[in-house]
Write a protein that binds this DNA or RNA. Structure first.
Lengths: 108, 108
DNA sequence: AAAAACGTCAACCGTTTGGTTGAATATGGC
DNA sequence: GCCATATTCAACCAAACGGTTGACGTTTTT
């Protein structure tokens, strides 16, 4: 299954979504509050949050009428490991990288 | 300028391009050789290589009639730093992160 | 009970993406 | 000079993306 890395990187490719992640770094937030600093509609932000949720980068829990958004740093670990394989190639954990190749890569 | 992270993450979001990066991890390769294991046209691979090049993830140098592709791990460092801010939040380099916020983030 | 607040859904729209094919442009070997 | 090799370009296509608006369903407040 190549999906996880696909969706995580695709989610991170949008600056609005990266900004949202950074906002959530400070504290959990309601959808409306996430949307407030942006100049786009609430529906657009709701979509962005859906993409972040499907990528596993955040979780959403509804309490009463407000839906709380929470950062989920675990999803970033897989991607982070992937990137370190290149960025810090000298410090690479070759076993982890091999396991990654087995599970994720299948060239054609 | 938010472009670098945008283009790097967008480039990484495609499994074909991630596979190409991994192939280049072993050695520099000519475009035709990169394309060989894939079931798509050479033109398609050429486009993928263009995207990786514009993202700074690889470089291409033409020698004779063959264009050599070379991994450029530096471009991954910025993105890697970005991700570690979340993934290993306990080990975060706060100074680097602040610098990142100054340069890259501008919420609206 | 009515109104306001919170959030999503559905339909739409223009742009980008990932692929195709066929022609074009070097460069190298005979 | 001629043909094969290596790569890109241009035009096209369907599907996905990022945004909008308006209607809708819940929950809270008054």
């Amino acid at each position: 299954m190549s999906a996880p890395l696909d969706t995580v990187f695709a989610a991170l490719a949008d600056p609005t979504r990266r900004t949202i992640l950074m906002m959530l770094l400070e504290d959990d937030m309601a959808v409306t509050d996430v949307a407030e600093p942006f100049e786009m509609s609430l529906a657009a932000i709701s979509k962005h949050l859906g993409i972040l949720t499907r990528a596993g980068l955040i979780s959403q829990e509804k309490r009463g009428r407000v839906k709380w958004c929470k950062l989920e740093p675990d999803a970033l670990r897989a991607a982070s490991v992937w990137m370190q394989s290149f960025g810090q190639f000298d410090q690479i954990d070759l076993d982890a990288f091999e396991r990654f190749l087995e599970g994720e890569l299948r060239p054609d």
